[in-house]
Write a protein that binds this DNA or RNA. Structure first.
Length: 169
DNA sequence: GAGTGCGTATAAG
DNA sequence: CTTATACGCACTC
């Protein structure tokens, strides 16, 4: 078993992505805490002795999300059953829209588990494709973001304008 | 068992 | 604005 990792530029800074034979397993922004991210990624996947670099992985992810090019990528999500449940719920939030933590909790049928759901969201290993940036406070203010609150705001603004463009076509 | 966290509501400084 | 209390629960140590 090996993992392949690589880098790519995006309109919002450089990302690092990694995949196993099963699919994309990690995607993070490097702008906020480059060394921390790389170290965390190495610690998380260090169990594999063999790693190879191939920026194709990161480029494909960036192309798919930012330029709508290529096909959807397979994901290889790793986490507790609860985390997987939360992350899959996040992927139901449509492009260009947002949801509150309470919305997510309710649609999961666990309205009282907000706090733990928020924690699981904060541990999302795959930025963009598991759209944790679309989850905000119930009153509309932005909650924190693992890769920086500014980036979260920019991503949401970008999605909103992209969505508006598509509507015009 | 104790402490923590990307929440929410309310009260208070 | 910030701190504090309460509720809540999955996770980590």
């Amino acid at each position: 078993m090996t993992i392949t990792y690589g880098f790519s530029e995006t309109p919002f800074g450089e990302i690092i992505a990694a995949r196993t034979g099963q699919g994309l397993c990690d995607l993070q922004f490097l702008g906020y805490d480059r060394m921390g991210v790389i170290h965390a990624l190495a610690a998380r996947w260090g169990q594999w002795t063999e790693t190879t670099q191939d920026d194709q992985v990161a480029r494909r992810a960036a192309d798919f999300f930012f330029h709508h090019k290529g096909s959807e990528l397979k994901l290889d999500l790793r986490g507790t059953a609860f985390q997987l449940e939360v992350w899959r719920e996040l992927m139901k939030i449509p492009f260009g829209t947002t949801a509150s933590y309470e919305d997510v909790a309710r649609s999961m049928g666990r309205p009282t588990a907000i706090r733990s759901i928020a924690t699981a969201i904060g541990q999302n290993p795959i930025a963009l494709l598991v759209p944790c940036h679309r989850v905000i406070h119930k009153d509309g203010t932005l909650s924190d973001y693992r890769w920086g609150r500014d980036l979260k705001r920019q991503l949401l603004e970008w999605e909103a304008t992209e969505k508006a463009k598509e509507a015009k076509l």
